[in-house]
């Protein structure tokens, strides 16, 4: 293992060791305070905070870039809308389109905010271990029914994809090939999808009952919710309060600049 890999693993571990029940609320609050920023003078702070968190998390750049794909398309669309349809001074014209200076500023600010908040979100999700997550989510007062749906959905995403693949293969083997016209396609796709859903309902009921019979949600294990509140370690408190401080600074600066 080279030194670079060792450093990355150490940084990953630093964030993974940060208790989920403290990490998720504090990073979420940070994301919300970033969403609160509207003043252009504060925009440079957002990439700085996002960069610090991203580099200390040890997450690969390729992962970050792959997660930017979906929002960037949306962002481009909104930016073009803002640049073209904002009121105010015209920067220059391209044929019938007038590019507005206020629109350019708004588009830039929005882009910075979007990319920085997404980066923090990626750090939050990708450094949160799945082991014992259900207990921790309940500890964070997330309703049990939502946690149960979430856990089962996570398991079922793979199953539903695999079932779909198998049904498509068996349908082809039996000669049910969707035709070129839309009505022919619907005639094949609809019963397949409906059967898949019915089968899914039956299977997931069995899985959920089996999970309960094995003790899911009933017993208190080392990872489940404990009645005795655990005392957070010094490391956890430092991480928690430094993230809260960043959020507080952002909110205070925005409010004071707005008032001034």
């Amino acid at each position: 293992m080279c030194w670079h890999e060792m450093l990355t693993n150490y940084r990953m571990k630093l964030f993974e060791d940060w208790d989920t029940t403290l990490k998720v609320p504090s990073l979420f609050l940070l994301m919300m305070s970033m969403a609160f920023i509207r003043d252009q003078r504060l925009m440079f702070l957002l990439p700085s905070i996002a960069a610090i968190l991203f580099t200390t998390s040890g997450i690969k750049l390729s992962l970050l870039l792959s997660r930017f794909r979906a929002p960037v398309l949306f962002l481009l669309f909104v930016s073009v809308f803002l640049i073209l349809f904002s009121e105010g001074e015209t920067l220059f014209r391209i044929g019938p389109f007038a590019l507005k200076s206020r629109g350019v500023t708004l588009a830039l600010n929005t882009s910075v905010r979007v990319l920085c908040i997404i980066t923090v979100g990626i750090v939050m999700v990708n450094t949160t271990p799945l082991a014992g997550l259900s207990g921790k989510l309940q500890k964070m007062r997330i309703p049990k029914i939502l946690v149960d749906i979430g856990i089962l959905t996570g398991r079922y995403i793979m199953v539903i994809g695999e079932d779909f693949r198998k049904m498509r293969a068996s349908r082809k083997l039996r000669g049910y090939v969707p035709g070129k016209s839309i009505s022919q396609r619907f005639r094949v796709i609809v019963p397949t999808a409906a059967t898949l859903l019915l089968r899914g309902f039956q299977q997931s009921e069995m899985v959920f009952n089996a999970m309960h019979m094995r003790g899911y949600g009933n017993t208190v294990s080392s990872t489940a919710v404990s009645d005795q509140p655990e005392r957070p370690s010094r490391f956890n408190m430092i991480m928690f309060f430094s993230t809260l401080a960043m959020s507080a600074v952002l909110i205070v600066l925005e409010v004071s600049l707005e008032a001034g």
Partner: peptide
């Protein structure tokens, strides 16, 4: 169990 399992299947879909 029925409510949770159906909701999970549809959430996955």
């Amino acid at each position: 169990a029925r409510v949770v399992s159906r909701a999970s299947v549809m959430a996955a879909a």
